[in-house]
Simulated assay, not measured.
Amino acid sequence: MYYRMDWKVDFAAQGLEMVATGKTPVTGVPWTMGVRYPKPVPQPIRIPLDKRSGPVMPDLLAGLPIFSARLVEVLHAAGVSNLDLYDTEVVDEVRNTTYTHFKAVNIIGRVSCADLAKSVSVPGHAPPLMEFEKLVIDESKTMGLPMFRLAEAVQMILVSETVKQAISDAKIVGVRVVSLDDPSAY
């Protein structure tokens, strides 16, 4: 079974303040396309925090995406090996703090595994930018990968049961892993 992984977490319900990045720098990396970038990327990638962000940092920041070293460790331990990682500095100008334990992450691999006959898509959207009201995965096409981008909707990161459990067991902050049967996945 596969799940959607994202950052659409209710921070207030967890007792946390919102954390968001400010203007994301242009790096040339096609972050959502699931392909390796062939040119060197200047590192560290400096990313400012939105000035309204709270002081507690989650393990995933929207944007490039940006994962904490802890989340990267959990993913590697769960068998995820298709991540290109870039050193990143997340700069909190309000608190005069720079966080260096984050990596900008390019998830390598797009898998075309949406069962379009059983899924419900939003009209007017075509691959690789489809939107779904209900997504059904043909698991025979996933090659057993623990984590990948959906080729039909590259903004969607899908993870296996093993990865879902590892994230839950590690009590990762600011990451939501939700069943594709749950309407909030869309």
Rank of each mutant, 00 (worst) to 15 (best):
R46Y: 08
G124W: 00
K103F: 14
M143W: 14
R149P: 01
S81F: 09
V175R: 15
A117R: 12
G174A: 14
A153V: 04
D87I: 02
L61A: 10
W31V: 09
V154H: 14
A12Y: 09
V91Q: 02
G174L: 09
D10R: 15
T162V: 15
P127G: 12
E17R: 03
S168A: 15
Y186W: 10
L64I: 10
T32I: 10
T27I: 03
E133H: 11
F132E: 10
A13R: 13
A170R: 04
L85H: 04
R95H: 09
M156V: 13
L116Y: 04
T88W: 06
K171Q: 15
G124R: 10
V90E: 04
T21K: 00
V175T: 14
T24F: 06
S184N: 14
A114R: 05
Q43L: 01
T162Y: 13
P128D: 08
S81C: 07
A13C: 00
E89M: 03
D6H: 11
E89Y: 14
M57F: 07
V19H: 06
L145N: 07
A69I: 08
G63D: 01
H101V: 02
P30R: 09
D115N: 12
D6T: 03
E152A: 02
V163E: 11
K103V: 13
G28M: 03
E161W: 07
P123D: 01
V26R: 15
A114F: 09
L116N: 06
A117C: 12
D6M: 08
H101S: 11
G34S: 03
P40C: 05
V178A: 10
Y37N: 04
Y3D: 09
V19W: 01
E17T: 11
G144E: 12
Q165V: 05
L16Q: 04
L129D: 15
V19G: 02
L85R: 12
S53D: 04
E131L: 08
A166W: 10
P42I: 00
D6R: 06
L145A: 06
M143T: 15
V177M: 12
Q155A: 11
S53G: 01
G144P: 08
I167K: 07
L71G: 00
L150R: 02
L16C: 05
K164P: 08
L158W: 07
V111C: 10
K118Y: 06
P65M: 03
D182C: 04
V90F: 01
S53V: 01
L129Y: 15
M57K: 10
P48A: 04
S184R: 15
E93H: 10
N106G: 13
K164W: 00
S68E: 04
V29P: 04
V94Q: 00
F67G: 05
M18A: 12
V9N: 06
P58F: 00
P38S: 02
L145F: 05
R36I: 08
N96M: 15
E139L: 03
K141E: 13
K8T: 12
T98S: 05
A12Q: 05
V80R: 07
L16K: 00
Q14N: 15
T162H: 12
D6V: 03
P38M: 05
L129P: 09
V136P: 00
M1F: 11
Y186K: 14
L64Q: 14
E152T: 07
E17F: 14
L116A: 02
H76C: 15
D169R: 13
T21Y: 08
P48R: 02
S112E: 13
P123S: 11
D92G: 02
T21V: 14
F11Y: 13
F132S: 00
A185I: 09
S121D: 11
K39N: 12
T88F: 08
